Computed example of a mutant assay.
Amino acid sequence: MNGSFDESWASTPAVRRSMQSNRSRDTKPELLLRRALHGRGLRYRVCANPLPDLRMKADIVFRPARVAVEVRGCFWHGCPEHYRKPSSNSDYWSAKVARNVARDEKNSKALAAAGWLLISVWEHEDPDEMAAVVAAAVSSRRRRTLR
């Protein structure tokens, strides 16, 4: 694609500009969760591959504990509570979200098969509550590896 609107997937130039400005990392929900985790004394990798052969970068990775965290947007990942079908270009976006959901499930299974725990945090969830969930999982899995 050379950047012209005629070849774009977007329904209008304004939609295209808006979609291009969406961040893939360092989103507000992700930063809030990272701040809460850091405040609990946890250290982690950001936007890292948990497994070298898996085409996936998790938002937050605790390698020794084998815990990966993904902060998922309600629209992009088809949140069961908040996703609503788009009114414009709905065939394209519905198919895109369905592919994202299928990819998320595939990645979750691949991580589990390799001994990893994937924690999905939805953007609407409280960052402090989710930091407690992540911290408990990391602590539990670290204790298990020390035995």
Rank of each mutant, 00 (worst) to 15 (best):
E7N: 15
E7R: 15
S8R: 04
S8W: 02
W9V: 12
W9C: 09
S11I: 02
S11F: 02
A14R: 14
A14K: 11
A14H: 07
A14L: 11
R16W: 12
R16M: 13
R17A: 14
S18Y: 06
S18E: 08
M19A: 08
M19E: 05
S21V: 00
N22S: 12
R23N: 14
S24Q: 13
S24F: 02
R25K: 14
R25T: 13
D26W: 06
T27N: 04
T27F: 03
T27W: 02
P29L: 09
L32M: 14
L33S: 07
L33T: 11
L33N: 07
L37Q: 09
H38N: 10
R40Y: 03
R40N: 10
L42P: 00
R43T: 15
Y44N: 09
Y44V: 14
Y44K: 06
R45M: 11
R45K: 15
R45C: 07
V46K: 13
V46N: 13
V46C: 14
V46H: 14
P50E: 10
L51I: 04
L51W: 05
L54T: 03
L54P: 00
R55N: 10
R55I: 00
R55Y: 03
R55P: 00
K57E: 13
K57D: 12
D59I: 05
I60P: 01
I60M: 06
I60S: 03
F62H: 10
R63M: 10
R63E: 13
P64D: 15
P64A: 15
R66W: 01
V67E: 13
V67Y: 10
V67D: 13
V69K: 03
E70P: 00
E70R: 01
V71Q: 03
V71W: 01
V71E: 00
R72V: 05
R72G: 00
G73F: 07
C74Y: 08
F75A: 14
F75K: 13
W76L: 05
W76D: 12
W76I: 03
H77K: 08
H77N: 08
H77I: 05
G78K: 14
C79E: 11
P80Q: 09
P80K: 05
H82F: 12
Y83L: 11
R84N: 08
K85V: 14
K85A: 12
P86E: 08
P86L: 04
S87R: 15
S87H: 12
S88H: 13
S90F: 06
D91C: 08
D91T: 15
W93I: 08
W93Y: 13
A95L: 11
A98Y: 01
N100Q: 15
N100C: 07
V101N: 06
A102G: 04
A102V: 01
R103F: 02
D104N: 13
E105G: 01
K106D: 07
N107C: 07
N107L: 00
N107E: 04
N107R: 02
K109V: 12
L111D: 03
A112L: 13
A113T: 07
A114T: 06
G115H: 12
W116H: 01
W116Q: 04
L117V: 12
L118G: 04
I119W: 02
S120T: 10
S120Y: 00
W122P: 05
W122D: 06
H124C: 04
D126Q: 06
E129D: 14
M130E: 09
A131R: 10
A131D: 12
A132R: 11
A132V: 02
V133R: 15
V134G: 07
V134I: 07
V134N: 06
A135C: 08
A135I: 06
